[in-house]
């Protein structure tokens, strides 16, 4: 997939949000000196290519009442981590799920899940459910609750996306 300068201008123009108006793409097109049809074609392609990964409401978890979040981590044998990761990702309270490298000796964990919940007890119960349902209790694991949010910004358009 290739993106050109016009695509980049378009992505930059809508990164802070789409105009909340009946014909939002026409408004964006006018601002950029493009035709509405051109903008629609480009956005459909950017979405099909996965450059636009989601399109809709971008929620603030904390403001919506999901006040607790934890990073739950496990050390799983390399041959099992993909299977377990796919299964954990199927739970609706798991909002991100990644395999990452261990950093031995201090950091032995290779599977990372973000779990959001209304409070810490809920998050603890949810993680206990993951361990019980997927037989993970025997593997080394840890839970890192967030204590403070030092920074959360909307990055520039080309930098946005989950880690």
């Amino acid at each position: 997939m290739r993106i050109d300068d016009t695509d980049r201008r378009l992505l930059a123009a809508i990164e802070d949000g789409l105009p909340l108006a009946p014909r939002p793409y026409a408004a964006v097109a006018q601002r950029l000196g493009l035709g509405e049809a051109d903008v629609l074609t480009r956005l459909r392609r950017l979405r099909a290519d996965g450059i636009v990964s989601r399109f809709g409401v971008i929620v603030r978890h904390h403001e919506l009442g999901y006040r607790a979040n934890a990073m739950a981590v496990w050390d799983l044998p390399d041959g099992q981590v993909d299977d377990v990761g796919r299964r954990l990702a199927g739970h609706d309270f798991v909002t991100l799920c990644y395999r990452r490298p261990r950093r031995l000796p201090l950091w032995p964990y290779n599977l990372f899940c973000m779990v959001h919940g209304r409070d810490r007890d809920t998050v603890r119960e949810q993680i206990a459910r993951l361990n019980a349902e997927h037989g993970l209790d025997t593997h080394p694991h840890d839970v890192l609750f967030s204590r403070r949010r030092f920074k959360q910004r909307g990055a520039r358009y080309s930098m946005r996306g989950a880690a």
């Binding site: 992505l11 990164e15 603030r60 990372f112 880690a163």
Partner: peptide, 30 residues
Amino acid sequence: LRRLCDEGHLSRFGPMYNAERLGGAVTLAA
């Protein structure tokens, strides 16, 4: 939607981009 954005329930209404597919890079560090 305008009110949900104004009141802070939504950070915005629009796209979310995939940094890697745009040629950028992302990592998590501790």
